[in-house]
Simulated assay, not measured.
Amino acid sequence: MKLLLATQNRGKIEEISRMLRHLNIELIKPEEEIEVEESGKSFMENAYLKALAYFKRYGIPTLADDSGLVVPSLEGYPGIYSSRFYSLDWGGKEEVQNSKDQANIKKLLRLLEGSKDRRAYFKAVICLMLSEEFYIFAEGVCHGEIAESPRGSAGFGYDPIFKPLGYEKTIAELPPEEKDDLSHRGKAIRKLSHFIEKCKHSIFYQRAHSN
């Protein structure tokens, strides 16, 4: 069985591959990135748009993820704009010096400077598309708060400044297996894994993976 991962993000590919390694599935990385206009107004809509674009291009079952960090005290930003938060006029643009991830973090910390409400949560929505007519979603949420400064070298994105609920360490300070257990993407992938396990022997599923 083959499953295309609709992303060129190395961090996501490593995480998803690690989480699905117990299944008898051949994970395919796309040969080239497809420019997908993320015009949706939610993580679910954008996950669907990504899955559809890659499915149309490669013609095999596709898994797409859309995820981000939500900070209630910042009106829900970065939210669906998490990957390009630095470039938004809202809150003032941040210059990219070393990486986009660092620019996003710098902007977020600047906007939260002096704030006592540092609550935040990561949200991930996974779309598994077996055909243009048959697709499912799985969602995961991880609650926590924003640290005062970046810590840790593991992970990617906002991981160095996000402390999961009940933790003093940031996500970027945790070993991969521990991160998978509590992360938003880990929760969504586990839900998806249960679905795959249950339907692996269905006629439709076998047809969808016959290529």
Rank of each mutant, 00 (worst) to 15 (best):
G40W: 02
G92S: 10
K191L: 02
K2P: 05
C199S: 12
L74K: 06
Y205T: 11
E132M: 10
N211I: 13
E133W: 03
C199I: 15
A124H: 04
D65E: 13
K93Q: 14
A53C: 08
L88W: 00
R21T: 14
E38H: 06
E145M: 07
E95F: 00
F137K: 07
S183G: 10
L128Y: 00
I126C: 11
A154N: 13
V125S: 07
P175Y: 04
E148V: 05
H201N: 15
F55N: 09
R119Q: 12
S193L: 11
L20A: 08
K100M: 12
A208Q: 07
Y48T: 07
F137C: 10
V70E: 06
R190H: 06
G68C: 13
K12Y: 00
I136K: 13
E133P: 04
E75Y: 00
I105W: 00
K12W: 01
I203G: 01
K116Q: 12
E148K: 08
A51W: 10
T7D: 01
G166D: 03
K187C: 01
V96S: 08
F156H: 03
I25L: 15
E14W: 00
N98E: 15
L130P: 02
G91F: 01
L108Q: 03
P30C: 03
L49G: 08
S210V: 11
G166T: 03
E173D: 11
C142Q: 13
S83R: 06
G79P: 03
E178D: 13
D65Y: 05
Y77G: 01
E33H: 07
A64V: 11
E26V: 12
Q206E: 14
P30Q: 03
L111H: 04
D101P: 08
W90M: 07
E31S: 13
M129C: 13
S83I: 02
Y81N: 15
E31A: 11
S210N: 11
G59E: 10
N211M: 09
G40N: 08
A172L: 05
D117N: 15
Y167W: 07
E95I: 10
K93E: 13
Q97L: 14
Y48A: 13
H184I: 07
E178S: 09
K29Q: 14
P78C: 04
I105L: 04
L130A: 11
I146T: 04
E139P: 01
A208Y: 02
G155R: 06
E26D: 15
N24R: 14
K56D: 14
A154V: 08
V96N: 06
N46P: 09
K2E: 14
F204E: 06
R57W: 00
L182V: 15
C199Y: 14
E95A: 08
H184N: 13
I105V: 15
S83K: 15
